[in-house]
Design a protein around this nucleic acid. Structure first.
Length: 573
RNA sequence: GACUCGAUAGCUCAGCUGGUAGAGCAUAACACUUUUAAUGUUAGGGUCCUGGGUUCGAGCCCCAGUCGAGUCACCA
């Protein structure tokens, strides 16, 4: 069912065609200026704006007899349009103003206008419209969000469900949404520039993988018909990028969509973007310096020459150098326990004392990770590198040069959350094979996130991979920090949502389409709410039921013939 | 997965102990030649998320479900 306003807009549409205005013209429209051009340049050089042409969406109408104002929104912003009857219609025929603009133009329509820039008595730079054409008629009313002089917003379109499901509407009516996504693009551009300046190569690796490797996570599974094999959507691209180091590249990086079949909440979306970079002949210490310098520069470029970022109640300063804290020291500091030489049972004892739930599938690594996650993580608000994780937690990472039980790994914590993860990459093929086998044991123990063994990756390592440092940064999370958004859905254009339920409301047309007479439709619908249900009953039954109903209620409409009813059925097939 | 809250006009929201649904904006009509949340007068617009139940009577109470939000759990 169309709403009243939708019907009105469709009527306006056909009236426009009657009057010779094409609401969806095929030809392009020559745009000479944008709202931003005019607002920025007019005061300085008013003579350059005698003749302007711009295009955009009508966002408001304020009509006062022979004069009217509208706001036009283009991709750069909003500008006021002044429509004057006698400017648009110099001749006797006032249709273009009285009917086309005043009655047939709706909020949301795309117009192309030409005119002259001037300043109104109220002091607002505006365009005096000389002529206008329709570029696209809008058939659905937009939510109307108004802002007054003090910046107070009225009737904001705020329902998160609608905003995410209909992001296009969100982008039209809510200022600030666009800026978030422009910043997101800037973040990525800025990082890409930094990598390219170093001569690192941007590459693409498979999203469909026969073995989902490089991380501990549950994958999505799909099926390739021609090969008749299962394929997995990648959970990380690490193992492919390292193969490229084997192949002889010195530095490779990829902005990659990864997919993890896990829970969704305001910091997790099933698909998300990660930047991974691998640089040969470097170690994790080098990578720490590289990472902090990179982030400092990205923050400055995105937020304008400051290293400080406001996030919720916190101010986070990305000024280098960041603090560096080994994980075991972090645990000691925040819990008082020295877990460095503990075995599994001792660790479980510690967990118990700290009120951390454990289960049998947890190995040493997972237990330490739990302790850190529960007791320590939240304390690291300012960017801090947590370093030297236990070996079992990091199956792709080199052993620590000073302590064989640790690895050369760091995570960057910001605002109590992991933002980046990096290693001195393990390139000893025999060690790597053993680590995979340990993962396999975990898997057999019931840890459904333990890694699979990738034999081709091992084969690649056996040819020799240069020592290298690798880094992964969650782009969505970084964007959240730099745009002060606490939910990942705000930094993804189209966050994953449960499918919308189709409105099951029956439509009159469904019934008239199969031949039910207009006068009968409402009564038929009372008996059979949907065409499907109607057709599931026998024609004779339907015929009798309906005519019985007619008689009982003394309806002043013609009785149905059995033939008519039978025709409804045949019209379907 | 658990708990809490929510779903009413195109949008934002109200709705008295249960008695045939209201406002603002938007829409339509009229007035108005520089407004800016334009204004004034008038009008139209609703499967009150779905399905059951209680009741003479349900937007409201009860049960079940759907979708969403928040908190927690899970999630390097």
């Amino acid at each position: 069912m169309l709403s009243e306003q939708e019907i009105q807009r469709r009527e306006a549409l056909s009236r426009l065609r009657e009057l010779g205005y094409e609401p969806y013209p095929a030809a392009g429209y020559q745009v000479t200026h944008t709202a931003e051009d005019i607002l920025k340049g007019f005061e300085e050089k008013p003579d350059d704006y005698k003749q302007v042409s711009l295009a955009g969406r009508i966002m408001s109408k304020r009509i006062m007899g022979k004069a009217a104002f509208s706001d036009l929104k283009d991709h750069t912003g909003r500008i006021q349009l002044y429509f004057n009857r006698d400017e648009i219609c110099p001749d006797e025929d006032k249709t273009a103003y009285n009917e086309v603009y005043k009655k047939l133009t709706d909020i949301g329509d795309f117009l192309g206008i030409t005119g002259e820039v001037f300043t109104t008595r109220m002091g607002e730079i505006s365009v005096l419209v000389k002529s206008f054409v329709f570029l696209s008629k809008s058939l659905r009313p937009l939510p109307i969000v108004k802002t007054d002089a003090e910046g107070n917003v009225y009737d904001a379109f705020t329902d998160p469900e609608q905003r995410y499901r209909q992001r296009y509407v969100d982008l039209i009516v809510n200022s600030g949404v666009k800026e978030t996504f422009m910043k997101r693009a800037q973040i990525i551009n800025s990082m890409r520039n930094i990598f390219n300046e170093q001569g690192y190569l941007e590459v693409e690796t498979p999203i469909l993988q026969p073995i989902p490797g490089g991380a501990a996570a549950r994958p999505f599974i799909t099926h390739h018909n021609a090969l008749d094999i299962p394929l997995y959507l990648r959970i990380a691209n690490e193992l492919y990028l390292k193969r490229l180091l084997v192949g002889g590249f010195d530095g490779v990086y990829e902005f990659a969509k990864d997919f993890r079949n896990e829970g969704m909440d305001r910091t997790h979306n099933p698909e998300f973007t990660v930047m991974e970079i691998y640089v040969a002949y470097k170690d994790y210490k080098w990578m720490m310096t590289f990472t902090e310098k990179m982030l400092e520069r990205v923050v400055k470029e995105v937020n304008g020459e400051t290293t400080k970022v406001t996030f919720g109640d916190n101010t986070i300063d990305f000024k280098t150098p960041f603090k560096r804290v080994p994980i075991l020291e972090a645990i000691k500091e925040h819990t008082g326990f020295d877990v460095s030489n503990m075995d599994e049972n001792e660790l479980k004892e510690v967990c118990k004392k700290l009120n951390i739930d454990t289960d049998d599938t947890m190995g040493k690594a997972k237990l330490i990770d739990e302790i850190f996650g529960e007791a320590c993580e939240k304390h690291y608000i300012q960017p801090t590198f947590i370093t030297d994780y236990p070996k079992e937690m990091s199956p792709l990472c080199k052993r620590h040069r000073d302590n064989p039980n640790l690895t050369e790994r760091f995570e960057l914590m910001v605002n109590g959350k992991e933002l980046a993860n990096a290693y001195s990459e393990l390139n000893d093929p025999i060690d790597q094979r053993e680590r995979f086998e340990e993962q396999l044991m975990l898997s057999e123990k019931g840890d459904d996130e333990a890694m699979f063994i990738d034999h081709d990756f091992l084969r690649a390592l056996e040819y020799g991979m240069p020592p290298a440092a690798g880094l992964g940064i969650g782009i969505d999370r970084l964007t959240m920090f730099l745009t002060n958004n606490s939910s990942i859905q705000e930094v993804l254009f189209f966050p994953q949502m449960r499918p919308e339920k189709k409105a099951a409301a029956p439509r009159k047309e469904d019934f008239t389409n199969i031949g039910v007479p207009e006068a009968w439709v409402e009564h038929v619908m009372k008996h059979y709410p949907s065409v499907k249900q109607l057709l599931e009953a026998k024609p004779t039954q339907v015929h009798q039921a309906l005519n019985g109903y007619r008689k009982k209620n003394k309806l002043a409409i013609d009785a149905l013939q059995l033939v008519d009813v039978e025709n409804w059925y045949t019209s379907q097939s």
